[in-house]
């Protein structure tokens, strides 16, 4: 009798298990997981593996034969040039992101106010800097800033000014690399802000107008609060990309003069590939990670908090 009961239970549980499996496979999250799996594998292969390999390299000695723990990092902390690169990277990223956001915000408003018919052309034209690969566009800028044959200097000379050592003087060289980064990155902010502007309900502005709000008050109390999340996301994204920038600085100044325009990526390249000290180069490039992780956590937490408040 007991045996019969057990066999009944087995007979009942088998199809139930089968249907449980089927249910799991039919769940939206499972389907989403499997659909995202190729991308996850690709990211693991192209991002996670190199990242962990870089961590491994950063723990080796110069000849890559001995594990040295965090010695490369402690060594860097004692180097004057390293701290100069840290300062320059922060200056480069923060000022470039600030001006990209500011210009993007202003131009987005201009474009938003252009009648719909002509707006498409302006949007297309304003996006051009962003769609040209920066290594190529920086080459064109390099010719404009060329130490000896600068087109800008030629124009300045017509008005009796100059010549300016665009890439030969430390301050002008910093200005030049930041300017190119702003020129290249502002269209990204423009298009994101334009999309955000278009999603602000018109009724809010109408209500503000009825309440007698000035232009500035409408920007401050309507536009900006409605765009806060998109501003935060674009600033975060741009900060990450700008901090990790390599091509603009490498093509325009290669870190010079006297290292005054080096950022993390170019200095890591100089140490690791050109100088043959791959562990030290890896350590420099990894130094970006905690800074960017801190920015990401800070900004995303703020967005999440506001999302919760809104719901």
């Amino acid at each position: 009798m007991v045996d019969a009961v057990i066999s009944d239970v087995r007979e009942l549980s088998a199809p139930r298990r089968k249907s449980g499996m089927r249910r799991m496979l039919q769940r939206k999250s499972t389907i989403a997981f499997f659909m995202a799996l190729p991308l996850l594998l690709l990211i693991s292969l192209l991002v996670l593996y190199p990242a962990f390999y870089a961590v491994h390299l950063a723990t080796l000695n110069k000849s890559m034969q001995r594990f040295v723990g965090l010695s490369n990092f402690t060594f860097l902390f004692k180097r004057e040039t390293f701290w100069m690169v840290v300062r320059q990277s922060c200056l480069f990223a923060l000022s470039a992101v600030f001006f990209k956001a500011l210009i993007g915000f202003i131009v987005a408003h201009f474009v938003h106010n252009i009648p719909a018919k002509g707006q498409r052309k302006w949007r297309g034209m304003l996006l051009i800097p962003w769609v040209i690969p920066p290594a190529m566009s920086t080459l064109a800028w390099l010719w404009l800033f060329d130490p000896s044959y600068s087109a800008f200097n030629w124009i300045l000379a017509l008005f009796g000014f100059g010549p300016v050592a665009w890439t030969g003087d430390a301050y002008w060289a910093r200005f030049s690399v930041i300017l190119i980064n702003v020129w290249y990155g502002a269209p990204f902010f423009l298009i994101m802000y334009l999309a955000a502007l278009k999603s602000v309900p018109e009724q809010l502005y109408e209500a503000a107008a009825i309440d007698g709000a000035s232009w500035w008050q409408r920007i401050w109390y309507v536009t900006l609060p409605m765009m806060r999340n998109i501003i935060a996301i674009t600033v975060l994204f741009s900060t990450i990309v700008t901090f990790a920038n390599f091509d603009i600085v490498q093509v325009l100044t290669a870190g010079g003069p006297i290292d005054k325009t080096h950022v993390f990526a170019t200095w890591a390249f100089r140490l690791g590939i050109q100088g043959g000290d791959i562990p030290l180069g890896a350590s420099v490039s990894l130094f970006m990670f905690p800074i960017l992780a801190f920015c990401a956590i800070f900004i995303l937490r703020d967005i999440h908090r506001r999302g919760n408040e809104a719901s």
Binding site: P147, S148, A165, W166, T167, P257
Partner: peptide
């Protein structure tokens, strides 16, 4: 040297000669 010599790369001196400057 030319005032912008600190910014010169390996192409700059070639250009300097070829341009006749």
């Amino acid at each position: 040297f030319p005032a912008d010599a600190p910014a010169w790369d390996d192409a700059s001196n070639n250009k300097w000669l070829v341009s006749g400057r």
